[in-house]
Design a protein around this nucleic acid. Structure first.
Lengths: 225, 225
DNA sequence: GTAAATCCATGACAATTATCATATTTTTGT
DNA sequence: ACAAAAATATGATAATTGTCATGGATTTAC
């Protein structure tokens, strides 16, 4: 049905480097899937038979800790590929992918991707660049976790959500994260998130209505000590 | 002088995938450098003109935090490449590399590496795999930072040093890390490291003499809650 | 070999964050 | 629309970690 050659989303990822032939092959074997909010795309430990290209929606990648809590490692958005790392090093998934809202994804079988990686140098170099960027971001995340306070990390994630996912008609953050999700992104207890958000409210930095968050003083969040 | 074709260290990294021609080219243009303990190989923000292949010695990769402290992101060892990420995405270095003991490295110019990456698919796929593995490790580090206590993280880094770098004749950990280094790996204050090590001593888990550490009860460290 | 510098160690105390208990509000399912 | 479930909120308190001060031990440089 839908044709990869015309797909705008593909242009956002390394898949844009594929040649006519290769695109056609993928068009022929890809499977489009709909994933509902809260559903799991794949689980830590699953052996993946391919990668997922996200057409719409947002997804969280989490890792289960020894205490049984989830830690969010990364939020993934339209145009990015899921599962490429596991496919490349041929290992089970390191993370669990869960839809934060309704998603549409294209599943591309492993053999197809691996074949293209080995044959098309521009494609594999592009994937390499993408991964290098991910690695850089992960390194920054390590430093943030190690050195910044919960308060600061929470302010930063709110700004991140604002800058990357924007706001809805009522100017509330678009990505629907629960306090629990925030806690597992920031790496703290849910109560600490709630308390800190209350603090932010008192300070006039944000407003909330239910789980929805609205930024009132962006600079205040940015300049947080 | 020394010939890359014969180099055993090269076999440990993605460079093992290079073909005869390519190796010769590198042999001809590489520069061998000696770096003394404490010296900086490159600094965060430097534009790198090539990558460094580590022949001997250990090196820490750090990032400067806003508070002016260093956070260690990774320890790098013989056979690994330094600076590949910056060269691949053509950006300034994200991290500072500092020798923890005397090192010998081979500097390979950027053009040479990039050429090989674009021409030799097996090489670039091998670099890709390496980077995928680094990314996985970085994700695990994020989770550890976010969820584990200082005590636990310190126990883990001691075990890591033991497993990856071994001990000297007197069965003390080989890598010479100061309490300050430990603090910036674990992501805590130096005093907290000192205090926690003292605690470990009291519990019979380790012994210390000066900055040297000896593991007395490996299982105790492994099973730490 | 000795002084200076650096590093290790520990106490006292403050700040941050976690945990447990318990309301209250919001969302969900029917 | 309504009850049940889930999520948010807040207080009280404990545990962890950070900061500042100070003294002793090692290492380094000349």
């Amino acid at each position: 049905m839908s044709d990869c050659e015309q797909c705008m989303v593909r242009k956002l990822s390394a898949l844009k480097m594929l040649k006519g032939e290769e695109i056609k092959a993928i068009s022929g074997c890809k499977v489009t899937k709909t994933i509902k909010k809260g559903e799991v795309v794949f689980k830590e430990g699953d052996m993946l038979n391919g990668v997922y290209c996200i057409s719409s929606g947002v997804c969280k990648l989490t890792k289960l800790t020894e205490k049984g809590k989830d830690q969010v490692v990364k939020l993934v958005i339209k145009g990015e590929l899921l599962g490429q790392r596991s496919v490349i090093i041929n290992q089970t998934a390191n993370l669990t992918a869960t839809a934060l809202n309704d998603m549409e994804v294209c599943f591309i079988p492993k053999q197809e991707i691996l074949q293209d990686l080995l044959k098309n140098n521009e494609f594999s170099f592009s994937v390499l660049k993408r991964m290098a960027t991910d690695l850089k971001e992960a390194e920054i995340a390590i430093v943030n976790m190690a050195q910044k306070s919960v308060r600061k990390r929470l302010a930063e994630i709110i700004l991140y959500l604002y800058n990357n996912f924007g706001v809805d008609e009522s100017s509330h953050l678009k990505v629907p994260l629960s306090r629990d999700d925030f806690a597992s992104i920031v790496g703290t207890a849910t109560e600490s998130v709630i308390r800190t958000l209350s603090q932010f409210k008192k300070e006039g930095l944000i407003k909330t209505s239910g789980k929805k968050i609205q930024i009132m003083n962006q600079e205040g969040l940015e300049l947080m000590e």
